[in-house]
Simulated assay, not measured.
Amino acid sequence: MVFDRAILSKIDSELENYVEKDTNLYNASKHLLFAGGKRIRPYLSVLTYLLKRDDISEVLAPAISVELIHNYTLIHDDIMDNDDERRGKPTVHIVYGEPTAILAGDLLYAKAFEALSNIGDSKKALEVLKVLSKACVEVCEGQTDDMEFENEFPTLEEYLSMISKKTGALIVAPIEIGAIMAECSSEEREALYNYAKRIGMTFQIQDDVLDLIGDQKTIGKPVGSDILEGKKTIIVIHAIENLPNDKKERLLQILGNKNASKEEIAEAIVILSDSIEYVKDIMKNATNEAKECLKIFDSERRKNLEKVADFIIERIH
């Protein structure tokens, strides 16, 4: 585990402050929030802040605002996708019903902005507000693009644009927030933005890879579920653009076939093997570039951010 447990404990304590009521609505909002998420987003905020500062108390509230937004999106995603399970647990709408789940998500969204109101410096608060609201807009745009891709094949460029919004926006935002709170210079903020864009991309691509070659118990869903659902991931897009016609046709027969057998899913994964290796190279290069972006910071202080970049492409869930 590359994460500092003391920091994670402070992040969890801060989160609990915003959802401590014991009512059906609050319990629904906590159902996923404390179901074993990695806390990578608030953790990135804190690590960015620690590049320049030592006492993290000032950054905790804005850091957890992104985690609250992230969990809001997960609750609503599960409703839109009719998913029954996440992180090995029944989804919020399965346990509490759709109306309560929608409200639980909305509550987390509102609590994120309540957290921002607790930033002591009004100038920093306004800057953080702009960053977070922009990220929320981009997540909605990215999710819409993803849904539209169900009916068409995106290009590699269109796919990367989509994940930079749907997934990347909530990786970039916490790093920008940490930089604002630590009063980083414009040069430092640009370096951090470039780092964040790269690890945001690798985060989603690794999810795409894990769906095909991960372990069902650790990823919390059946291996190959993206194939059953017909998702046009970067792996599939690359394969369609590069496979010989016979393999391409066979892949398209299996992709999106809800009745595909385990053997057919395994066959599709074999067909995709070269494309899996291709995206692993993309992730490796992007990770090296991300760490290069951090070179303007003190070597000791940047170590944990470098470790996170490596963790993202080495993680198993």
Rank of each mutant, 00 (worst) to 15 (best):
L103V: 14
G105L: 00
D106Y: 10
D106K: 07
D106A: 12
L107E: 03
L107P: 03
L108K: 09
Y109R: 08
Y109N: 13
Y109V: 07
A110I: 09
K111C: 09
K111R: 14
A112Q: 06
E114N: 10
E114C: 05
L116K: 03
S117C: 02
I119S: 12
I119L: 10
G120E: 07
G120S: 14
K124L: 15
A125N: 11
A125E: 13
L126V: 14
L126M: 14
L126G: 04
V128P: 08
L129Q: 04
L132H: 07
S133L: 14
C136W: 00
V137S: 13
V137H: 10
C140W: 03
E141Q: 15
G142S: 07
T144L: 14
D146N: 08
M147L: 15
M147Q: 05
M147E: 06
F149Y: 15
E150C: 06
E150Y: 09
E150F: 08
N151M: 11
F153A: 12
P154G: 05
T155A: 05
E158Q: 15
E158S: 01
Y159F: 15
I163K: 00
S164P: 04
L170V: 05
L170P: 02
A173D: 02
P174M: 06
E176I: 07
G178N: 08
G178E: 05
I180Q: 05
A182T: 09
E183T: 11
E183F: 10
C184Q: 05
C184P: 02
C184I: 01
E188S: 04
E188H: 06
E188M: 10
R189S: 14
R189T: 12
R189I: 12
E190H: 11
A191V: 01
A191G: 04
L192I: 08
L192Y: 11
Y195A: 00
A196I: 02
K197G: 02
R198G: 05
R198S: 15
R198I: 04
T202I: 15
F203H: 00
F203W: 10
Q204S: 01
I205M: 07
I205Q: 06
Q206T: 04
Q206I: 01
D207F: 03
D211W: 01
L212Q: 13
G214R: 01
D215G: 02
D215A: 06
D215K: 14
K217P: 09
T218Y: 12
T218G: 06
T218E: 11
G220I: 03
G220M: 03
K221H: 14
P222Q: 05
P222E: 03
V223C: 12
G224Q: 07
S225P: 09
I227N: 03
L228E: 00
K232V: 01
I235G: 00
I237Q: 02
H238S: 02
A239P: 10
I240W: 08
E241A: 03
N242S: 11
P244V: 03
N245C: 01
K247H: 12
K248H: 05
